[in-house]
Design a binder for these strands. Structure first.
Lengths: 211, 211
DNA sequence: ACCTGAACACCGTTCAAGT
DNA sequence: ACCTGAACACCGTTCAAGT
């Protein structure tokens, strides 16, 4: 059920995890629990127990529960950014690339709901506490801004403030993603995938340069 | 700091709240705490203490903490629905009314962040547990669908599936609302109000009937 | 009918102690 | 260096008892 398949590291004969392996194992067990029970039910005790480790062993690798969640979110923003860049590049930039980015964003949320909820679900008290997390989040947003600027340069989209346009697009894909993974789209044709495909068509018209 | 100003009911001379008054007071104190400290820090003990009441007095009026939060959310959806209908009517329906609805949606979230977070923040384990809550949520969404159908009838917007179009618009305003109240829009011109005004302009073009 | 106060089964976090 | 186990200060919820 883990979102990323990974081998669980085994303990060595002294009953210890090799250097850094427990940290990785804690992260993956947290992700697994979040996926199964929700972030709100994540307990450090259960994470420790699942790995056969004391409940305070975690504090060797993370300052506290917030730091564990911040690590989950940071990893999420990194994977999201890579997904966006991949979609943009794989479709040769331009209009097709931009539309693929929109689809990829919602697809990331649907395939990594545990990551996505921690990234945006207000479980992190203070995002700015972890500088590297803030940097990863900024980086993912920048991919969107850069794609808009490039399209403006090529005359494909309107010459509005690229930051404003990026916030507009981000709001849309974020809204679809959140409503989808929270099961808010009901009915037969309610899948977030369909909504995002419809949205991409409409957005094309909303931002294209008028001639 | 309460979102809705209201007089706190006083206890009578037997040290009791009059019928129903404690329920109302609990709701308002919960809202106040959520606004000040966030939903994640809401504790029933603190709510009781603030009202000078035992921590288990609450269980006379709410089945549990979830039921208290569900009541907050239900009230939120009711006020949201009223705000949308008011905006739609006050601007004479049509395009102006629809745009006013979009602005009103984001404005509701910005002026009632505590309500909004409980409504959409995943603190309610199971929305369908409270039938009246599900009904209020459905009612608010229906206002949007009805407005789209009316505009289609008048030839103002495209003849796409109105449910799909409603989900598209809802995702956008929900995304703006969430990112805004979570402080995710940074920078000088970052206010959710500005993003929603920009969005309304772009959406007009996205959904208008092509001639 | 409404509220109290003690009790229960949980939390995250700390810290002296072990290897 | 890494982990344990007891302890601390919190939670939500239950329930017998009071008025």
């Amino acid at each position: 059920m883990a979102e990323e398949g990974a081998l669980r590291p085994t303990r060595n004969r002294r009953g210890r995890y090799p250097h850094g392996a427990l940290r990785r194992a804690l992260l993956e067990e947290a992700l697994r629990t979040i996926g199964a029970d929700g972030v709100e039910h994540l307990t450090l005790r259960a994470v420790g127990a699942a790995l056969g480790v004391s409940r305070s062993a975690l504090y060797r690798h993370f300052a506290d529960k917030q730091a564990l969640l911040a690590a989950v979110a940071r990893e999420g923003f990194r994977v999201l950014r890579e997904s966006l860049v991949d979609a943009w590049d794989a479709h040769g930039h331009g209009r097709a690339g931009f539309e693929a980015m929109g689809i990829a964003y919602v697809h990331f949320a649907m395939t990594h709901p545990s990551h996505y909820r921690v990234m945006f679900g207000r479980f992190l008290e203070d995002v700015s506490r972890d500088a590297r997390l803030a940097e990863e989040a900024r980086g993912a947003f920048q991919v969107l801004v850069d794609a808009i600027v490039e399209q403006q340069r090529d005359g494909l989209v309107r010459d509005d403030d690229p930051l404003m346009m990026a916030r507009f697009i981000w709001s849309l894909v974020h809204g679809i993603a959140m409503l989808e993974i929270d099961g808010r789209f009901t009915g037969e044709r309610a899948r977030g995938g369909e909504v995002s495909r419809y949205a991409v068509q409409r957005i094309r018209r909303a931002i294209e340069k008028e001639r």
